[in-house]
Design a protein around this nucleic acid. Structure first.
Lengths: 409, 409
DNA sequence: CTTTATTATTAGAAGATTTCCAATAATAAA
DNA sequence: TTTATTATTGGAAATCTTCTAATAATAAAG
């Protein structure tokens, strides 16, 4: 028994929207389908498909690319999404970079741009940078302004999506209740969508891998902090307050390291890039080689998780232990989340995944220990291949998602 | 971008079903609404409401109960669900009891029945008992067989809902791949629905508390074992393999007690009724008073979590510690799940909740420690008031849910 | 007691969309 | 050139919502 608020009201507009979205998504998944095939796949009447495709052709969302004869009989006309229908811009605000991307209507990346930022920059400056990255990309694309379908913006931490407000972020200075919507709308004159970084990355992953039918997964973003996003039936899951997926602050080591959230033994305090750097710096101090490489006051300003990887490459066993301990804690937390959510796939992303097998081997080993074989067997565990594109692509996907998504529930 | 399989196809039947379900659910939530009010609440056209209610009246699902004048003007006719539309039977198979319940179309309980079973009973005998409980209730209700809307059956452990097969259960002997559908369909000649016990209980909770708009919650079933069920937007969440909510086997105490699943430190091994009994019996052994009250071979055959409560009542501090330690672990696991799912409510149910504050105080205290204040503040934590009715009511709700639920996604 | 005002419900037509059935289109093979 | 075959579409029928106005049921005013 669903909630009665925000319920679909059944009218003809809904029918049309539903069927149009269905056709659009089939074409997106398998570009190049005839009306006949669409008829079969949608279970709709042939005439309805004619009507729907006529609309989509008129709107320029799809195009006919030729005919395909299957021997005898009238050949079928092959329909595809029209990449030229429009383009979307995505801007991703990270702790050290702003990354922008432009994609066409099919999600193909048209252009990229980046800009470094640093801790301490005023929010207003950051916003200006984000907008100028977006504008630069817009120029690179060389497309009519009217073809801009929208702009997606993702920012770390807590976000008010509707209002377009950056509520709070750990890694950005003075990032509190920063109003974003107006400056972006003014600059681009198109619809602007907002969401949190990891969720955007999940959306980007889903869009990039649309052919894999990646519709139910848990994404772990392992970088300086630890984020997670949940996708269920092809939709982002937000939870009551829009903060679902806070796996970084689940307790994995009761009584362990003090986290910046105030608790002890949070996953983020034990196994994030930040935590690994911190533990490494503690290790250095213990070894009494601290003075030259460390600055006082900043706990992990000078060393990073990447330094730990370098040390491991040089054969430092302590560092290897440190890293694989973290990977095991990540595995344990992931296993718990998997038992609760029972997703199809578990996708890893973020800086720590650059460690490859160094991360993956102890991680998988822990999953094997923690999960029943039947569950493990049916769980895909993968590292995202999107790399740095994840964030900005996800931001751009916010725009496309708006167009492709069917009205729900 | 949702999955293309199992997608709604937009046709007139869908419209009708959607709007009918909308009206039905509004009446269920707030019995006694005029067409005018339905028009306002659904945002549909007045004539559409006339059409929909005409259908529902003809079908006997709703009835007009009188007129209400609001001063001047034609008085509105008040519509209600018609309890006499039909009734549903729910049968719940537990470790020690079979419980049955009958409800009318509005979910009001008409009749109850129970029967004890014991470990070692053959599955075929258990099934016969379940069916005879169902038949007994049917007789008590004294309603026409054709008014039986369906039978809901919930069984513990793994269930194949579509096929109606009890796949496996820890607390039932030889309960492996037990085919249930045929015997029930044969006995009742009505649609039969199957699901797992805790999920059913969650559905029952939602139906019983329909006026509270309890649509997004995590239910923890704390009895001999530990189960959980997730309700999102008024729907049960199943996960990929239908096993979401396995919180009982998330690790809360690495390297702790050995669980029957083979792992160490599972919540179920540390804080279930079974675990508490086991720890108590270990305690007794340590105190060397073991010989008289314990039998060899069965780890907790003679003592139960209830004995622990009795001891606490008698002032046994060790027992109190034992119990509150368990409650704290439950709290820690619940907190982790809450951070991942961000539900509106956390509902506790099952035998251990009989301990009341003895459970709730350390449980809440742990939540306070583990959850950020903003989250805690917006989280309702409650003990279900359904008690023993939860299971069978949930089973019966499987039937009603089928009727009330709108086509989704 | 009749009329008027007011509100709720419904009738009938209009509008929108899917579906059914048959026609048309486009091609290969005969 | 004709026939067979398959794909697509045209037009009417069916179904449902919505629009507009009529009707129903009541209280208040006259």
């Amino acid at each position: 028994m669903q909630s009665t608020t925000n319920r679909l009201i059944g009218n003809h507009a809904l029918l049309k929207q539903l069927n149009r979205s269905h056709v659009l998504n089939l074409l997106r998944r398998q570009n190049g389908l005839s009306r006949k095939e669409l008829t079969r796949l949608t279970q709709l009447d042939g005439k309805t498909i004619t009507n729907v495709t006529k609309d989509l052709l008129r709107l320029g969302m799809i195009k006919a690319i030729g005919k395909l004869s299957r021997g005898v009989g009238r050949p079928s006309e092959i329909l595809e999404l029209n990449p030229q229908y429009g383009f979307a811009i995505g801007v991703d605000l990270g702790a050290s970079h702003i990354a922008g991307i432009a994609v066409d209507f099919t999600g193909t990346i048209l252009s990229r741009s980046q800009s470094a930022i640093h801790y301490g920059m005023a929010p207003s400056t950051v916003i200006k940078r984000m907008i100028s990255i977006g504008e630069m990309i817009h120029k690179q694309v060389k497309a009519d302004r009217r073809k801009l379908l929208g702009v997606g913006v993702c920012v770390p931490g807590a976000v008010n999506r509707e209002e377009g407000i950056g509520v709070w972020a750990a890694n950005l200075s003075k990032w509190e209740n920063v109003p974003l919507r107006y400056p972006f709308e003014k600059a681009f004159g198109s619809p602007v969508f907002f969401d949190e970084s990891t969720r955007c990355a999940a959306l980007g992953e889903m869009f990039a891998r649309v052919h894999d039918e990646l519709n139910d997964f848990l994404l772990l973003d392992l970088s300086l902090g630890i984020g997670a996003a949940i996708v269920q039936n092809g939709r982002l899951y937000y939870g009551h307050m829009g903060i679902a997926g806070e796996i970084g602050h689940t307790t994995v080591n009761p009584g362990g390291m003090v986290c910046r959230c105030g608790k002890q033994g949070c996953l983020e305090a034990e196994a994030s890039g930040f935590a690994i750097a911190k533990k490494y710096s503690d290790l250095l101090r213990k070894r009494k080689i601290s003075s030259t490489t460390m600055k006082k006051g900043k706990q992990s300003g000078a060393v990073s998780a990447r330094d730990v990887l370098d040390r491991i490459a040089q054969g430092d066993e302590d560092c290897k232990t440190l890293f694989s301990d973290a990977a095991r804690m990540l595995g344990a937390a992931a296993a718990n989340a998997v038992m609760i959510l029972n997703p199809v796939s578990l996708i890893l992303m973020g800086g720590l995944t650059r460690a490859g097998d160094l991360l993956l081997r102890p991680f998988r080993e822990t999953l094997r220990k923690e999960l029943r074989p039947e569950i493990l067997e049916k769980l895909n565990v993968e590292i995202s291949f999107l790399g740095d594109d994840g964030g900005p692509l996800g931001a751009a996907s916010l725009v496309l998602n708006q167009i492709y998504e069917a009205p729900g529930i």
